[in-house]
Amino acid sequence: MDLETTLHVATELAGAIWVTLALAAATLPLGFMFAALTTWARKSPYRFAQTVASAYVLVFRSTPLLVQIFVLYYGLSQFAWVRSSPAWIVLRDPFACAIIAMSLCAGAYTAEVMRGGLAAVPQGAIEAARSLGLSRFKTFLLVTAPIAMRRALPAYSNEIVVTLKSTSLACTITVMELTGVAKDLMSQTFAVIEVFCMVAAIYLAINMILIFALRSLELSLSPAYLRPASRMRRMIPWMSRSIAR
């Protein structure tokens, strides 16, 4: 690869990083919101809400994300009433469609992470808080949520990495993010290996930063007696091992 091509590839990729990051930054909070709603519905006393939430998690976890994106983007445009409704402003935009589909999918997986975190909260802690006279809401806010969050963080950081990787599917509906730009560059420049290595390095760097940040958050949430003597000593082997899942 000569210098001119390298510069061309680098500038193209630098622009695409922001699209990928924007997709991830929009998907993650929305996915968290869907997951929180689902968890709330599962814990609610209404049988109907429980059924809907369980069906949502089952369906979105056992169909491929690409199918979900295509149903939303290509499938819904079949109906005339969708095209004439105000929702069409959102549904005809590939960027918005990708974000909606990906956050619904991420929400289903995150709901499972939340369930795992809540299941790990010892019953005794909740009982202790209740017997001290805390209300149900305060018990949740001050006791259940912090413990569950700490327990769920390792699984959630995996989920974040999976979401970041899944943003690549947006290029199938013409959103030119990192992978889509890489595909075009590969077919234009024929420098397949070089382009792949550069894009892979970008993804791995973003993953590393995210994992590092979440690990720090997890450590800062841990009580002092659970923290290792040297933070770095525990952090380094952990980072090299668990890039995804």
Binding site: K165, T179, A200
Partner: peptide, 22 residues
Amino acid sequence: TTLLRGVPPLLVIFLLFFGTNG
């Protein structure tokens, strides 16, 4: 393993699609 698990599968597919012939 770090590379293949940290990179989107779609990128791996493009690498193989454009790269194997060469």
